[in-house]
Structure formats: C-alpha cells, structure tokens
Simulated scan of single mutants.
Amino acid sequence: MSNELKHVAIIMDGNGRWAKGRGLERFLGHRKGTQATIDAVKFGCDLHLEHLTLYVFSSENWQRPSKEVDYLMKLLVEMVHKELPDLMEKNVKLVVIGNINRLPDAPRSQLQHAIDETANNTGMQLNLAISYGGRLEIVDACKAIAKEVQEGKLSLDAVDESVFAKHLYLKGAPDPDLVIRTGGEFRLSNYLLWQAAYSEFYVTPTLWPDFTNEEFQKAIEFYNTRERRFGKVLHE
C-alpha cells in the first residue's frame, strides 16, 4: 500500500502545561502555541499536503473558565486577521469544522471573512476544528441522512460508508493518513472519530508550543516506516 501523505491531523495539546512548567499564566502558553500553529501550517504547505486539520478548540473546551475562553477567542481573532495575507500568498483554503454558530460575534465574523476570502484558493486546505466534537459530528451526519431519507431524497439502501462520509463536516475529504498528538497523551479526545479509523497515530511528549518543524519531520519519518494494510494481508 502507498504511504503517500495527503492529510495530516494534529491534536495540539500542552499549552497550559508549557506555561505552568515555567511559572506562567495559562494564557501565555496559548499565545506561545500560536507560533507553533503558524509554523505547522507553513510546513504543511512545504509538504504539499492536500489537507491539514488542526484541533483548535473542542466542544468540551467551553467548560473551561470564562476568562480563559474569552482570551482564546480574542487570540483566534488576532491570529486569523494577522495570518490571512499569508494564507492568500500560499494559496491556502481555510475551512472551519464544528459548531461555529456557538462562537461570539467577533471570532465568528473574522473566521467567516477568512473562509470567504480563501474560498477560491487551490492549494492546501487548512481545516480548523473549532467548537468541534467527533461524536456530535457523527450525530449531525445521522440527522442529515435521516432527513434526506424522510424527504425521499435518499434511499435507505443507498446509505453506505461513502454516503455517510459525505455528510460529515469535511464532506468526504480523504481521511487523515497521520494523526499527531503532542503533550504525551494517548487518546483521541473526541477528535475525528470516524475519519481516524485507519490513521497512523504518532504521540510525542513535546508540548505544543515546543513543536517545531524538526518535531513535525520526526512524525513524517515515523509515518514513512509504517506498513498501511487497512485490514488486508499485504505479504504472505
């Protein structure tokens, strides 16, 4: 099986621990982490990825202290505004997956502006998972399919894995070949539960603010050693 790398998904974990380990406020860890995010996007473009999906803010993150959530929303507005010219220059298409309607007006407006501005770009698609939950995504897909069946637009017998995937937030985009998690935790944390069924999983203890291009390259090198069988027997 080919190990061609088309789609990388990253769980960007460790901003808070990075700050705590230095005796700093958590928000400074989030700010430091934005540079790692910017670098990862540039590296993804250099790799000629079709998709880079970043877990920015989960549906569960709304339960964090309001002060931290407010700061994260302001940081999101700042980063999208600052990086939009670079996304345009690199021909990157921005897509947001998740419940964007739950966001406050300013970040929702800024994101929508960036989505509209980059809509016709033909390079790497940068998918930001914001207010995102994998289980909710699956429930939403089920509801959408049920509605189409109920309205007679779709036959129940026609519903298969391909049809289901097209009702997910990324509308049938290729599944992640590689899922990277920083911060050393070994769990998906409700991230791309359907799409990651056969993804290679790379965990590094490196905290997200310290995730450099060299760390990214290590993940790629790990991926290149994998024999991807997708349940099949490749060699007798």
Rank of each mutant, 00 (worst) to 15 (best):
S2K: 04
I10Y: 10
I11D: 00
M12I: 01
W18I: 03
K20C: 06
G21A: 15
R22S: 10
L24P: 01
L24T: 01
E25H: 14
L28Q: 12
G29T: 05
R31C: 00
K32Q: 11
K32W: 00
A36W: 03
T37L: 14
C45D: 06
V56R: 04
F57N: 04
S58N: 02
S59W: 03
E60T: 01
N61F: 06
Q63R: 08
R64P: 00
S66L: 08
K67C: 04
K74R: 14
V77S: 13
H81N: 15
E83A: 06
M88P: 02
E89A: 15
N91V: 08
V92H: 02
V95S: 12
I97G: 02
I100R: 11
A106Y: 09
I115C: 09
E117I: 08
N120M: 12
N120L: 15
T122R: 14
L128Q: 00
L128F: 03
S131Y: 03
R135D: 02
E137V: 02
A144E: 02
A146K: 04
V149N: 01
Q150G: 04
L154V: 02
D157F: 11
A158W: 02
V159N: 06
F164D: 00
R181I: 07
L188W: 07
S189W: 05
N190F: 12
E200F: 09
F201N: 08
P205D: 10
P205V: 15
E221D: 14
